[in-house]
Write a protein that binds this DNA or RNA. Sequence first.
DNA 1: CTCAGTGCAAACCGTTTGCAGAACG
DNA 2: CGTTCTGCAAACGGTTTGCACTGAG
Lengths: 167, 167
Amino acid sequence: MSTTSVPIAPFVRLFGRYLREQGLPVTQQREAVAQVVFGSDAHLSVEEIESILREEGDRIGKATIYRTLDLLVKSKLVEEHDFGEGFKRYEHRLSRQPDHDHLICRECGQVTEFKDPELRRMQERVAREHGFVTSRHKLEIYGLCAPCREAGATLEEQGLTCPIETV
Amino acid sequence: MSTTSVPIAPFVRLFGRYLREQGLPVTQQREAVAQVVFGSDAHLSVEEIESILREEGDRIGKATIYRTLDLLVKSKLVEEHDFGEGFKRYEHRLSRQPDHDHLICRECGQVTEFKDPELRRMQERVAREHGFVTSRHKLEIYGLCAPCREAGATLEEQGLTCPIETV
DNA sequence: CTCAGTGCAAACCGTTTGCAGAACG
DNA sequence: CGTTCTGCAAACGGTTTGCACTGAG
């Protein structure tokens, strides 16, 4: 939701290094997209990335943005998310909290990151119990953030009056 | 991934009751779709639902299936899932494990359900710490199931040789 | 009978792809 | 210079919607 105060040039360079390792050209479009993604702590959509680029005067086609994001994801510098909005969001992995999870406000869509040490243990335990080898998990907790709640938002749900046991 | 041995008629009737409560007609298409969804313990895609209906001789348009699934979800009898495959899956909530989570095999796509009591406590704690009121969570653990591992599947990942601290 | 539901096909929308021209190495 | 990229626009695929017709109540 903002610009980091951390210098982002090193991260962009890291991406350049990845491209060279793969024998791929380091184009100015790729650097511009990387700059935007590394320059924000938010979970950006392609549309948001496009409009930030436009504000900065760069006029880069959507296709190129998608293709560059693919590379960023492959390089493991960026993570792709799907919060069920109908489109993907991208977040760089250079923030303070590696391997974190997300709290998502149903009202305003704000995404808060958190990290819980228990979770990793639980992931391993559950996987073991089912004969799985685990690679990754995704935990999203949906609810209402404090500001929205204070503003009067509620999570009214309705369905069957007496459905199935819900707990 | 199979047909339940539990009688499904009561569940279809429950849906009928919901429809009447809402003043909506109980049509044979709606009952047919409900029958398919309640009749399977799998996480069905719309395409799968359509083809099961076709096998049974029912020829119901995709639009109707989508519209009926919306109603089933609204009734809270069915849950919608997005496992990142590019389409949604639907699961009825009448199985043994209410409020469960999912283990997903990256190789064969098999979905295993599990339930962990710790998780709910953790969800509440994390939410409280961030001033959230929680409504629901979604935990998916991705990995390799035992059969796939025995068949030689691996989770080879590649990216930057020395990216960021990964733990 | 009336109002909502159904089926079809067209519209949608995020994402992907084909291709002519531009740029990297 | 050859190879890959870029940008545009068209294609894609799951989902939604408009509309004439059918069916539930």
